[in-house]
Design a protein around this nucleic acid. Sequence first.
DNA 1: AGCCAGTGTTCGCATATATGAACAAGCCCC
DNA 2: GGGGCTTGTTCATATATGCGAACACTGGCT
Lengths: 255, 255
Amino acid sequence: MDARETTGPGVKSAMRTVALLDFFARQGGMYSLTEIQQELGYPKSSLYALLRTLVQLGWVETDPTGTLYRIGMRALLVGASYIDGDPVVGMAHETLDWLAEVTGETVHFGRLDDFDVVDLSSRPSRHNLRPVIRVGRRLPAHSTALGKALLADRADPRLPEQLEPQTERTITDREELLTDLRRVRERGYSADREENSPGVCCFGVALRLQRPARDAISVSIPVTRLDDVREREIPALLMRARERIEYSAHHLLHP
Amino acid sequence: MDARETTGPGVKSAMRTVALLDFFARQGGMYSLTEIQQELGYPKSSLYALLRTLVQLGWVETDPTGTLYRIGMRALLVGASYIDGDPVVGMAHETLDWLAEVTGETVHFGRLDDFDVVDLSSRPSRHNLRPVIRVGRRLPAHSTALGKALLADRADPRLPEQLEPQTERTITDREELLTDLRRVRERGYSADREENSPGVCCFGVALRLQRPARDAISVSIPVTRLDDVREREIPALLMRARERIEYSAHHLLHP
DNA sequence: AGCCAGTGTTCGCATATATGAACAAGCCCC
DNA sequence: GGGGCTTGTTCATATATGCGAACACTGGCT
């Protein structure tokens, strides 16, 4: 989950550096030295030196008084490069465009990370030009089509202690979720019926580029636009998109 | 620009940690230990320990053989939090939506960083649903409306040695650029006439939330849709958007 | 097969950093 | 306005890290 100091050998101040950055990412506001020290448990003086160093380098910013810290812009630039440099995302790009075009709905590309899925690429729907761009944001795996498509590909899916409800339809019972995952395996795609966001359904398929699968793509659609035709059409288009991506990936991974 | 080791006192391994991350961000591929060592100049064994630590923490990933390194997903999550946690971006959100709505064109929010502008938020145009989402990407300040709006707000704008041409219309002469910046100050908005991207013009205004201004917003439009009406209309709408953002910011910054 | 060049990995000492305690600076509340 | 509390900053030394050199592997070439 987060950067712990308990991992045997390793460069201590490097671990603390990224633990500090992780802290800012989780909390996402401005914090004083003492607050950070209370949260991370490092000695005040160590944190002080570390923070000053990171401020100098643009990875941490301070308020005008210099006593409140937040994450810096350099972190944003490096984060964006993760997506630019990812070969799978790069290859999927065209196909995601195509999928957004033919469905007219919001398209996502996600990657599993612990119990969450991280959005690595998305396309807005034709009907709503201002989706919140969610690249780099986490979504619970158990409540999303992306996540369920990925969990279904694992023989023994790791699940959090508590399946936190996101809406009143979120599946919070382990057995029920496992049953759903079995259905996903049978029919080849996952579905989220307003389980993550009220009024929004999603369909998802996992990309079989490694075992178990790590990446998935999905199409989101408001229930108001979801009819019997779309109910059949979207999964079919998703599977075609999957094949296109897997095909290009095959050429790239085995040249 | 990047994290150098020359900055007087500071935690050495923290500086190296972020310098390493910066390196991956700049290069954006996969690199072997030796390649990184040649680029950064640190001893091989030091880099080795550092890389192993960062891999353990998810900030660096390796290929299946474990000898090629790239940036890890944790970096993406932290980068995204920079935008989520930024008060100005948060406040501008609604107004950017409005601006995208009334213009129907691509809208950007950018922040100055050295000689570049970093895209912190964007809205797709109504006509092209698949703009490359460029959040977290850098653009040269001298060739963009965002950048020129920000440079114009500085009494002595810092410019790179060489004004690199991005298109054949990029202003590469310092004097000519300074003249253009003077015009920007006079009329209150900046314009980019295919100077950064062929076939695309932009208008921009700086947000006067601090002196000198650090943030700007812009509207991009293909030359093919740019007529006399839009030529007047878009700058006017930009200025209205600016006022709306500055108004909300005033309330938030001086409660 | 065996050599060679290049690369990744380990190890013990010189060096830089982490640390707790002491110092300074605000800030609030009475 | 001053006591007491909280927070930011500095400093000397124990400690962890950075370093070069030696070792281990790998793959390509003759």
